[in-house]
Design a protein around this nucleic acid. Structure first.
Length: 243
DNA sequence: CCCTGATTCGC
DNA sequence: GCGAATCAGG
C-alpha cells in the first residue's frame, strides 16, 4: 500500500481527531500501526500526548551526563516549555473514546446494470459498513446505547470493491464526511461516529485552527474557576447527546 | 500481559 | 520515504 493523497488525508484527519495509531492503521488497512506513526511523524503531525515522553530536558541532560560521565558537558540547551497560552479547555478530540471507522457519506451511485468489474476508483480508503440501523436500547437522553466494544465491527477490513450502501440520501447530501475534510474546513464533529448522520461542520476554518470561528470558541476557552464553569463543556465525541 | 506513541535505522 | 524493530510509560 502506498500513501496516496486520500490515505494521507485520512491519516491526518483521524490523527487530529485523536484516533490512536492502531485505529487509523486499521481504518486505512494495509498498514501497520508503526507505519501510521512513522508517516504521522514525517508529516510532522506529532503534537500528541505520548505515554512515553521524557519531556524533561534537565533530567535528560542529567541522564546523559551520568551515562557519559567522562564526556564534557554538552551544553544542555534549555528547551522551551509550553508557554501559558490560553489553555484549550475542551479540545473536542481529547475525550474521543473510540470513534468508529470513518463514516463515509460519499454518495456512490451504484449502477446495477453494469456488472463488470469496473475498477471504479471508489474511495476504498475506508471500509464502510452499511448504515444498517443499529437497534439497541435507548438511554435516558434518548441516545442509542452502544456497548463499549461494539462501536463497529472493524473486523472486515476487506477492501470493498464498491461502496454500495452509501445511499445518496438527501439527509447526507450537504454534510461533510470524514474524507471530505481538508485543512480549510472546520473539523468539528457533529453527531456521533457510527451513527448514520455523523458528519463534520465543514465551514471555513478560522485560519490556523482546525475549526471554524464558532467552534474555535467552543474548543478554546480560558480556564475559569470551577465554580464559574459551564456545567457541560461541549463533548463533540462520546458522551450521551442531549436531544 | 495488554495498550500507547517515539525513535532508530536498514532498506 | 518507508516501516519493522525497539524502546519506554501507562
Amino acid at each position: 500500500m502506498s500513501w496516496t493523497d486520500e490515505r494521507i488525508q485520512t491519516l491526518k484527519t483521524m490523527w487530529e481527531a485523536g484516533q490512536t495509531a492502531s485505529q487509523i492503521a486499521e481504518a486505512l488497512g494495509g498498514v501497520s500501526r508503526n507505519a501510521v506513526i512513522g508517516k504521522a511523524h514525517r508529516l510532522e503531525l506529532q503534537a500528541r500526548p505520548s505515554p512515553v515522553k521524557p519531556n524533561d530536558p534537565e533530567a535528560k541532560a542529567a541522564a546523559a551526563a551520568e551515562a557519559s560521565a567522562s564526556i564534557a558537558t554538552p551544553a544542555p540547551e534549555p528547551v522551551e516549555v509550553e508557554a501559558p497560552k490560553p489553555a484549550p479547555v475542551a479540545p473536542p478530540v481529547a475525550a474521543a473514546p473510540k470513534p468508529a471507522a470513518p463514516v463515509v457519506a460519499e454518495p456512490v451511485v451504484d449502477e446495477p446494470e453494469d456488472d463488470e468489474d469496473q475498477d471504479e476508483v471508489a474511495p476504498v480508503a475506508a471500509p464502510v459498513r452499511a448504515p444498517q440501523p443499529i437497534l439497541r436500547s435507548v438511554g435516558p437522553g434518548g441516545f442509542l446505547r452502544q456497548a463499549p466494544g461494539e462501536q463497529q465491527p472493524p473486523s472486515t477490513p476487506a477492501p470493498p470493491r464498491r461502496l454500495v450502501p452509501a445511499k445518496p440520501s438527501p439527509e447526507m447530501a450537504n454534510k461533510t464526511s470524514l474524507l471530505e475534510l481538508n485543512d480549510r474546513i472546520c473539523k468539528w464533529p457533529l453527531g456521533h461516529p457510527g451513527e448514520p448522520d455523523f458528519h463534520f461542520c465543514g465551514k471555513a476554518v478560522n485560519p490556523g485552527f482546525p475549526y471554524c470561528v464558532d467552534h474555535c470558541g467552543h474548543a478554546y476557552q480560558a480556564q475559569l474557576p470551577r465554580r464559574d464553569r459551564r456545567p457541560t463543556p461541549p463533548l463533540p465525541f462520546g458522551g450521551p447527546r442531549p436531544r
